[in-house]
Design a protein around this nucleic acid. Structure first.
Lengths: 193, 193
DNA sequence: GGTCACTATAGGACACATCCTATATCTGTC
DNA sequence: GACAGATATAGGATGTGTCCTATAGTGACC
């Protein structure tokens, strides 16, 4: 459901083609809402049918025509309504936790393998996000705060979640190395704040 | 893709009916992999067609027949193969972060509303998970560690992620109350560990 | 001279999940 | 006596997203 609205969000800044939108997604929100190219074109067709966007055909001599999508008044209204409506969180899908839940079906050593592989992935993700953060910080500082605060908070949230995940993986691997992993895990569970 | 394997996982302990499976999901992994009842029945039909499970019809006099699903040898092999295969993380879907990204399209006060609503949801989630933790801790301590470690780690991961999310929301709301929110956010971004 | 990547669009098939609905009977509550 | 809720199954429609493919010209690389 959010793809429609994310597209409307991008179009609220300036009119874009499907191709432009794909690049806009990949360069910003892709970490927490990736968009498939085919899906973008289909969604744009739907939005245009609902009169939430208007299509301006821009002829190009050498390449196929670009179809610039302009946000209409009702499109903006739809975006604002969505921003103000309560957020419906989709069900979490964490295959790693499912695996962890049934890990006793395979050899005990495999638990460590599973966690270490995930830790490597988390470190990579963290490195990417950190790079994005250092790269965009000057732009955030220069832009008017009302404009930049949203994107900056988004990035911070992604970083915070990824760091926490990494830290948990490190802690979990730590308990496996002790003599009494189960006791350590139970202690961590009880230490709820 | 994980629903198939989660079902195989549950069936590795004992044969279950579709109805039993629904209850098994709701009572354990629902927090990070919810299962729709209709989807469970359809997936079971597919697994049976692929000979990964075998159906035993148990006639009941008063109610509709139960269809007990037994894991076959190839079913167990499939489960083990999945547990040992690298985990494919599905793309993250965080509508709240998408909203945050485009929040400048609505009145600035709305940012706080958005975060506070999410904070309330996070606190509720945290309370549920903490209740589950205190409720299951005795069972974890009593069970053989090789069996219980997986589920305990799963719960810990869920708790850790939810706590981190709650903490981030509190921190983000804190920056909004200061005189220079943008500077505070940039400081937090830079404080990468 | 061939292959690859880029710009730009979009259809078809399929996977996966959700929502709503239907059937049928028993048990417990008000 | 009525009605809700538990037990037990499953179909149909719809939504949402993924994967593969096709078209078509330009520019760059080797």
């Amino acid at each position: 459901m959010s793809l429609r609205h994310a597209i409307l969000g991008f179009l609220s800044h300036r009119p874009l083609s499907g191709y432009d939108l794909k690049k806009a997604f990949d360069g910003s929100v892709a970490h927490f809402w990736a968009a498939d190219q085919a899906q973008i074109y289909r969604t744009l067709a739907g939005l245009s049918e609902e009169r939430l966007v208007e299509v301006e055909r821009v002829a190009q001599e050498v390449r196929p025509d670009r179809k610039l999508h302009h946000l209409t008044a009702s499109g903006r209204a739809e975006l604002v309504a969505w921003l103000q409506a309560p957020t419906v969180a989709p069900a979490r899908r964490e295959p790693l936790l499912v695996k962890l839940f049934f890990v006793s079906e395979v050899a005990p050593e495999h638990l460590g393998v599973l966690l270490r592989t995930e830790l490597a992935a988390a470190e990579r993700e963290l490195a990417t996000l950190n790079a994005v953060a250092t790269g965009t910080a000057p732009a955030f500082a220069a832009a008017p705060p009302t404009q930049a605060l949203g994107p900056a908070l988004t990035l911070w949230a992604g970083l915070a979640a990824t760091r926490a995940w990494r830290d948990w993986l490190v802690a979990a691997l730590g308990t496996l190395e002790g003599d009494a992993p189960m006791a350590a895990v139970l202690a961590a569970l009880a230490a709820g704040a």
